[in-house]
């Protein structure tokens, strides 16, 4: 493992501070792979310090107010990509209707980090352990992406392409995350296993359950987050989840899991915790 303490300075780069989305897109178009977008910096500055990336310019997104709005309409919640996580948490509807997202964000990093860390940055890093990914998967989030020449909206399930890689090309920026308002009576939740209060997850699990659909999503247990639909098991109430049914559900999930051994946990323990949390989160959703 690299000794981060020896990296007491950052490498050289220029910081550019555009004040509108259009300026961001023009700069991205000009610098492409020579640039990196800077939101809260709570992932990027660490990667720079560890010399994992060497951009010539950083394009700071924090002065672009259009990227920091958060809105609820009749149909959806629209979160500007650069909205600090602490602000997302203050909107009551997030807890009321998007509980899985609320639970993931309230426990993401620590309170001081949440003042700066953003939702766009959390998925932008495309870490397999990104806490927001599991709730965004079960909640059917859409990612809005722009470049100078184009704009597109893709489902979150297509965003992650591998460990720390995503579908963005070098001239694209995430502008917002759109989440449809779930059906009345929907329950959603997120739980994770971790070593200490501010450590990355050993495994993260989100669940969504309503009269039409039951699905689970996992982080930190495969190169990208995973979405698994278990509607076919026709779970309606707590009693439906007996040992036999749970074993059949787990048989469906297990072949998809492909965790690594690392400092946080062994593969075996990750899978063990995934099973325990899956059972617990399903039980609670069916209460």
């Amino acid at each position: 493992m690299k000794n981060t303490i020896s990296f007491s300075t950052l490498p050289d780069f220029d910081l550019l501070t555009p004040s509108s989305l259009n300026e961001v897109l023009e700069l991205l178009n000009q610098y492409k792979e020579k640039s990196r977008l800077l939101a809260g910096g709570t992932d990027l500055l660490i990667e720079l310090r560890q010399r994992l990336k060497a951009p010539e310019v950083l394009i700071d997104l924090k002065k672009v107010s259009d990227l920091q709005t958060i809105r609820i309409t009749d149909d959806e919640l629209i979160i500007g990509a650069v909205t600090p996580i602490i602000e997302i948490l203050t909107l009551p509807v997030v807890k009321e209707e998007f509980n899985a997202l609320y639970q993931a964000l309230i426990d993401l990093a620590d309170e001081i980090i949440r003042y700066r860390a953003t939702l766009g940055g959390n998925i932008g890093t495309a870490s397999p352990a990104a806490d927001s990914a599991a709730p965004l998967y079960v909640l059917d989030a859409q990612i809005e992406i722009s470049s100078l020449s184009d704009a597109r909206t893709i489902p979150i399930t297509q965003f992650f392409t591998g460990v720390k890689s995503n579908i963005l090309s070098t001239d694209e920026v995430i502008t917002s995350i759109r989440i449809p308002r779930p059906l009345k009576g929907t329950k959603s939740a997120f739980m994770k296993a971790k070593r200490s209060s501010e450590d990355l997850a050993i495994v993260g699990v989100a669940c969504l359950h309503n009269e039409k659909r039951t699905s689970l999503a996992y982080t930190a247990i495969a190169p990208t987050p995973l979405l698994i639909d278990i509607t076919d098991f026709k779970l309606e109430k707590r009693e439906d989840l007996n040992q036999t049914i749970f074993e059949r559900i787990w048989e469906k999930i297990l072949p998809n899991l492909n965790p690594i051994d690392d400092v946080r946990s062994s593969k075996k323990y990750r899978i063990h915790m995934a099973e325990i949390i899956t059972r617990k989160i399903l039980k609670e959703a069916l209460e």
Binding site: T4, G41, I46, A109, I112, I113, Y115, E198
Partner: peptide, 28 residues
């Protein structure tokens, strides 16, 4: 103590809100 956002020992208030100053560029 860590320079990577873990220890919080470098915390200051920036525009009246807490930040870990090792994760903020001076230019910002």
């Amino acid at each position: 103590a860590c320079w990577v956002g873990d220890c919080g020992i470098c915390t200051v208030l920036l525009d009246e809100k807490p930040v870990k100053s090792c994760l903020v560029l001076a230019q910002e």
